[in-house]
Computed example of a mutant assay.
Amino acid sequence: MSFGQGGGYGGPGGQGQGSGFGPPGSGGPAPDWSALADSAAAERRRKRRLWTIVGGALATVVIAGAVAAAVVTTSGGDDDPSSSASEDRISGAGSESGKGDPSFSSVAPPPDPKEFIASADKDTAPLTVDSFFPNAEITVSGHTYERRATHNTRDCASGASSKLGKILTANGCDRLLRATYTREGTAVTVGVAAFADEGPAARTAEQAKGNLESLPGQGVPEFCRATACRLTSNTLGRYAYFTIAGYADGKAVTADDAPTSEAVRDTGAYVYRRIMDRGREQALKSTEQ
């Protein structure tokens, strides 16, 4: 197809004559410009009406979709915690008994046991041997120990070497409780020193020098007096606690000695639990008052 003169469409290989729109004076008949304008205007009006109808239908679909979404979001269900039905189930409203269960928000969390062993102001339970060493036999990590001796004194320095005794006294130790346990020839003494609060207890464990005095009794001779033994020191709340472990026959402890390592670890863990139990018992009593 080729373009003819005057901008019209011509036939194959020829010029456009009379079939296209030509400029004035091109020789073709003059177009009816008024009729053409009216026809174009009518076509534009028809298209506007069509788009208005289609657009309105589309708007209706969008609005209907939005309403459906709103219904789904607010209806709630068994897994929807925001629904009123879920809230009623949690609070127990409408239960068959008529009383309902207490809501979760109304149940106060239990007190922290560590708050009750942090200072003497709250830790008011008696400082007795039975509080810390109540069992004649204990089993920790599969190892069973027998209690052979106990001691309770307000003179903390009397139950420790001179170096550790001075540190206990300087930090205001109020009481020292000790117990000795044995297992297959191993002897271990564990001691708990009580202070006014956490500060001096932590300082004592950090400054610890020398050792706890071992406690003989019930078939256990003096041990760890002139030979190498294993020592530990630790702290929990207002308490510092110590262990010293060796052999009842006086044999020296070596660095890689397993029985004494187990003895200090096991009895230390036992005392830790006893102190925590002390806090838990007092915390529980506070909720009953």
Rank of each mutant, 00 (worst) to 15 (best):
S2L: 10
F3S: 13
F3L: 15
Q5F: 08
G6R: 11
G13V: 04
G14S: 14
Q15F: 11
G16T: 04
G18H: 14
F21S: 12
F21D: 13
G25N: 04
G25H: 06
P29Q: 12
D32H: 00
W33L: 15
A35Q: 09
E43V: 12
I53N: 00
L58E: 00
A59Y: 04
T60C: 08
V62N: 08
A64P: 01
A66D: 06
V67H: 01
V67G: 07
A69D: 12
A69S: 12
A69Y: 07
V71Y: 05
V71S: 01
V72M: 10
T73M: 14
S75P: 04
G77R: 09
D79H: 14
P81Q: 13
P81I: 14
S82C: 01
R89Q: 08
I90G: 02
S91E: 14
G92K: 07
G98K: 07
D101C: 05
F104N: 11
S105A: 14
V107N: 05
V107S: 03
P109Y: 02
P111V: 07
E115Y: 10
S119P: 02
D121R: 12
D121I: 13
T124C: 00
T128Q: 13
T128R: 13
F132C: 09
E137F: 04
E137Y: 06
H151K: 12
R154T: 12
C156F: 05
A157G: 00
K163G: 02
L164T: 10
I167E: 08
T169H: 02
T169D: 12
A170G: 00
N171W: 01
R175T: 15
L176D: 13
T186G: 01
V188H: 03
T189R: 05
G191D: 03
A193L: 03
A194N: 01
D197P: 05
D197H: 02
G199Y: 09
P200S: 13
A202I: 05
R203K: 08
T204A: 06
Q207D: 15
K209G: 10
K209V: 10
N211H: 02
L212P: 01
Q218T: 08
E222D: 15
F223Q: 06
C224I: 02
C224L: 05
T227G: 03
T227A: 01
T227E: 09
R230T: 02
L231S: 05
S233C: 07
A240G: 01
G246H: 00
G246P: 00
Y247T: 03
A248H: 02
A248N: 08
V253G: 01
A255S: 14
D256V: 00
D256C: 00
D257P: 00
D257F: 03
E262W: 10
R265L: 04
G268L: 00
G268Q: 04
G268W: 04
V271E: 06
Y272I: 09
Y272R: 15
Y272W: 13
R273G: 15
R274C: 08
I275A: 00
I275K: 05
M276W: 00
M276P: 03
D277V: 02
R278F: 03
Q282S: 07
A283V: 03
T287I: 02
